[in-house]
Design a protein around this nucleic acid. Structure first.
Length: 567
RNA sequence: GCGCCCGUAGCUCAACUGGAUAGAGCACCUGCCUUCUAAGCAGGAUGUUGCAGGUUCGAGCCCUGCCGGGCGCACCA
């Protein structure tokens, strides 16, 4: 909404024929301080086009432009032309706009199909918080794009035939009743054995070969383990409001005629060749890869079994048939896959496809070092969530006593999930995160519970106001700075969403939620709404509670976080 | 060794992609609950944006070189 108002101002400036198309060079921003203005137009570039100094241009525009009705006054501050809006009119427009349940949405994605692949954890163990970062980012991006009216399909790629699952199959042979929570220990054990016992590794490779040859018993064994793991992982992720539309199984991309044909073409140019050990090798330098390191990639082992990359090429061809175009095909990958993804992209381009966009996230580290499954130094998502749940429960008990045990658990769950998801998503994907229990489980300041609490406050006021409907049209009172700052921020919601989409960075939404909550709380403390004798102040206050509620509802929904009515 | 990412207040992170005096939270100090929820608010203190150059009207952001951390570099996925 803010940018619509800015657009009106720029349109008015463009009416002067001397400026013409140069107005597109105006940079829109917010002034550093409220007293400087509401909208700031930086004129550096436009002045350059007109061979003027920016301050002179600012003064000239200020003198010669008939500004639209929404403008109260303008002021020149060096190279900036600052605009003050008419507060009551702006407030009315915003409070009207938030009546729409979908406030913040745009037609950005109309008619476009998007495929997002995320999580795709190896089926071996309960996800730790580092892996959950993938799922939390991917889910938030999916929600954002859905909200912007893209037709989104979320895929989870199950690596049901890698080396690690073959190890598990061997290790679970004499355990017909194995359950999900035992898998982690078994996996750690199997890894140890792999290092010590070369025969075990040969057994693993042999099993993979049988799998590829279609041995039905082996296939059933693999599927049994994979299903236990996938069901276990899915259950945990569902617990933090993450879900998927389609589960793709790697083993379905084992034989692919189309891929074989494309590889045959590459073989003619020497891009793909059989080496002295009969391995099928890809030479990426032939596709424009410039470095020596990472130049080669093995597609098939000497015994003819395929490697991950081979199957992944086939998988990406399948995904590209569902959604095309870089922006509409998204995959969330750890930073360890950066080089691999570069290689994958080169191959897909050589095949004539546009490769997907990748969001690479950095690993979450512990203060004592990196997480290691083998050392047992991992923070499992379920343990983290459980700890959060307990701490939230304690906190609730000190505040209220009139909740049943069930209600208590439901409320604690909503707040705990909010704390966990918000803590992960508020940091942009490529920033390193150092995980610290106390910091991660704080409920004060820049946290999910703080946003939830602010929402609850707003709802509480609306509840107390009952059926009172704020008369939006006759808003004549002076609008305080606290109310005005909140209004301006609320009006930027759609712009934040578009920027978050453009940069595929949902952290931006979380940062914006913090801004909204802070400004709402400042406003809340600046005036007592319900007891105010001025009905205009009551009307504006209730309108702002409603608007804040709407923006937090929509914003937190995009982050997969629910909102309690009380807390 | 080579490549990519990160380095911002004591700690954890922002900074609208090159714009005005670099901002929040935690921790620390001082105030504010007989008034719509104190998981809150107000105020205080905290910086050579890792270091050194360069590009320009203007650099935390771009370029070069160092330093520190992370990730990766052909039968793991």
């Amino acid at each position: 909404m803010f940018h619509e108002q800015a657009g009106l101002v720029i349109d008015a400036i463009a009416k002067n024929s001397a400026y013409g198309a140069f107005v597109s060079q105006i940079q829109i921003a917010r002034p550093p301080q409220l007293k400087a203005g509401d909208l700031s137009l930086a004129l550096f570039r436009m002045a350059k086009e007109l061979a003027m100094t920016p301050p002179a241009l600012a003064q000239e525009i200020a003198d010669n432009t008939v500004f639209p009705d929404c403008v109260e006054s303008v002021s020149v501050a060096g190279p900036y032309l600052n605009i003050f809006f008419k507060r009551p009119a702006f407030a009315q427009a915003l409070l009207k706009a938030v009546q729409d349940k979908n406030y913040g949405t745009t037609d950005e994605g109309k008619g476009q199909k998007v495929l997002i692949e995320h999580t795709s954890i190896n089926p071996n163990a309960s996800p730790h918080i580092g892996r959950a970062r993938n799922a939390i980012i991917g889910d938030s991006v999916s929600r954002l794009m859905r909200f912007l009216n893209y037709q989104v399909e979320v895929h989870y790629y199950v690596n049901d035939m890698g080396k690690q699952i073959a190890m598990l199959v061997l290790a679970c042979r004499d355990k017909p009743d194995v359950v999900f929570h035992e898998i982690l220990d078994i996996y750690v054990e199997a890894n140890k054995r792999l290092e010590e016992d070369p025969a075990f590794e040969q057994e693993v490779f042999g099993l993979l070969k049988k799998f590829e040859e279609g041995d039905q018993t082996v296939r059933n064994d693999f599927r049994r383990i994979a299903d236990i793991c996938v069901a276990g992982q899915k259950g945990i992720l569902n617990g933090i409001n993450i879900d998927y539309d389609v589960f793709d199984y790697e083993s379905d991309f084992l034989r692919n005629e189309e891929l074989e044909e494309k590889l045959a073409v590459l073989e003619k140019s020497g891009t793909v060749f059989l080496d002295e050990d009969k391995r099928l090798v890809l030479d990426l330098q032939k596709l424009g890869f410039s470095r020596e390191e990472g130049r080669y990639s093995v597609l098939k082992r000497g015994n003819g079994s395929t490697m991950y990359g081979y199957r992944d090429f086939a998988y990406h061809m399948y995904k590209l048939a569902i959604a095309t175009g870089k922006e509409n095909n998204i995959v969330v990958l750890g930073e360890d896959h950066k080089l691999y993804f570069e290689q994958l992209s080169l191959v897909l381009e050589a095949f004539g496809y546009t490769p997907p966009s990748a969001i690479h996230y950095s690993f979450i580290r512990l203060s004592e070092g990196k997480m290691s499954t083998r050392k047992g130094s991992v923070v499992l998502l379920e343990d983290f969530l459980e700890e959060a749940h307990q701490r939230v429960k304690e906190k609730i008990k000190t505040n209220t006593s009139d909740l049943s045990e069930t209600e208590l658990d439901e409320l604690a769950h909503i707040i705990a999930v909010g704390a966990v998801r918000f803590g992960v998503i508020k940091v942009k994907p490529n920033s390193n995160i150092v995980f610290d229990w106390d910091q991660a489980l704080s409920f004060e300041g820049d946290t999910g519970p703080y946003i939830q609490y602010s929402y609850v406050r707003a709802q509480s006021i609306l509840r107390a106001a009952g059926a009172y409907v704020a008369p939006l049209d006759g808003l004549t009172c002076a609008i305080s700075d606290e109310a005005w700052e909140l209004l301006l921020s609320l009006s930027l919601f759609d712009d934040v969403l578009l920027r978050a989409k453009k940069t595929i960075n949902p952290a931006m939404i979380a940062q914006y939620m913090i801004e909204i909550a802070q400004k709402f709380n400042k406003f809340y403390h600046s005036v007592h709404i319900l007891s105010n004798e001025d009905q205009n102040v009551v009307a504006l206050g209730l309108g702002l509670c409603q608007a804040t509620g709407r923006v937090i509802e929509n914003g937190m929904m995009l982050l997969g976080i629910q909102l309690p009515e009380k807390m």
